[in-house]
Simulated assay, not measured.
Amino acid sequence: MYATISPSDAPSGTPSDAVPAQRTSGTGRVSFKASDKGATRLDRLYQQGCAKIRLPKVYGGKAAEAVLINSAGGLTGGDVVTWHAKAAAGTYAVLTTQACEKIYKAESDVAHVANHLTVADGARLDWLPQETILYDRAGLNRSLDVHLEGSARFLAVESLLLGRVAMGEALHTLTFSDNWRIHKNGKLIHAEAQRLKGDVAHIGQADAVLSGHLALATLCYIGPEDSDTMTALMESGRALIAPFEGCTAGLSSFNGKILARLTAKNGMALRAALIPLISHFRAGEPLPRVWTT
């Protein structure tokens, strides 16, 4: 004999009651110091929840490398991940991610990712996460908070893929925001807010938005170079990406920084143009190995 229990008949505390879904959370912190011989070494490491950090051996490069890992395998509404990184004077570190971060559809709320970076006088930090992939009905609120001192150098790249092109997926419902705040010696020197909401497949067709492209990236370089050197870096960067078809890019130099915006028809076209541009602003330093394996 079989029996069914309707919601009105079920006793309190049974699965029929509204129970919040379990959500992912994690916090990772890493800091670097200079050794007596001037090499960059790990200073402190902390990881909690889904946030993991690995420090692979690096061959052929000057920078120490930290690979940030979300062991949950992706994010959805209500998930919270926070990363902190510090580079002490005389260090050179690069932070990247093990793979592309996937943002899945959210039944409610949005995923929250907060990145906090500090770069001391005479240090350099490169923030080079791999692409973020947004699925239809995804929600993500992301922030980048950076504090630089003195002659610090900083390179940041964030790339976004709108849907899975190979699967024919179009983003009809999306909530995405990305807020950058970069300070130098306590003064705000760069702020931007990017927001995509609604039927992105339709909105992105406009020439003033994405011209139908489904991949986009922002690159920002800040350093102690004089204006003539920064202008030369910008112009050589423009020449470097000009030959790439399927990718539209613009570079500008002002107030001690270089800013690049790129859009492309798909992730492969975006990465093809972005990789040499990143190498250009890293003075030929090799990309993190996870980018090419």
Rank of each mutant, 00 (worst) to 15 (best):
D43S: 14
L75S: 08
H190F: 15
W291C: 13
G267P: 10
I69G: 08
D121T: 02
H213S: 11
L42H: 00
R29P: 00
N179L: 07
G150A: 12
G186I: 08
L155I: 05
S177C: 05
E235I: 05
V113R: 08
V30W: 12
E285R: 01
A66I: 09
A239S: 12
L214M: 08
D121N: 15
T175C: 02
C100M: 10
S8D: 11
V81C: 13
L75Q: 07
V80Y: 03
T76S: 12
I189K: 02
T173H: 08
D43G: 15
A87T: 11
K37H: 11
P243E: 09
T4D: 05
Y2W: 09
D121C: 01
G256F: 00
Q98L: 07
A217G: 01
S177W: 02
L188Y: 04
T24S: 12
T24D: 13
A193R: 11
W291Q: 13
C220M: 11
R164I: 05
A191K: 15
A193D: 03
H147E: 14
D79S: 00
Y59G: 04
M1A: 13
Y135Q: 01
S16Y: 13
L125F: 09
F244D: 06
E192G: 04
Y2P: 08
L45N: 06
R238G: 00
G60L: 14
R153N: 09
T4L: 05
S159T: 10
N255I: 06
M1Q: 12
N115W: 04
K257D: 02
H213W: 04
I278Y: 00
F176T: 04
T132G: 02
R23I: 10
L160F: 04
L125A: 10
A138V: 12
V58G: 08
A249Q: 07
F154A: 02
V209A: 07
G122P: 12
G49N: 12
V67N: 06
K187M: 07
G186V: 03
G198Q: 05
P20L: 07
G186N: 06
K257E: 03
R195T: 11
R271T: 14
V113K: 02
N266L: 14
M230K: 06
A273Q: 06
I258D: 09
Q98K: 01
R282A: 08
N266E: 15
K37S: 14
A166K: 02
P129W: 03
L155R: 03
L196E: 06
L216Q: 09
D17I: 11
R124I: 03
Q22F: 05
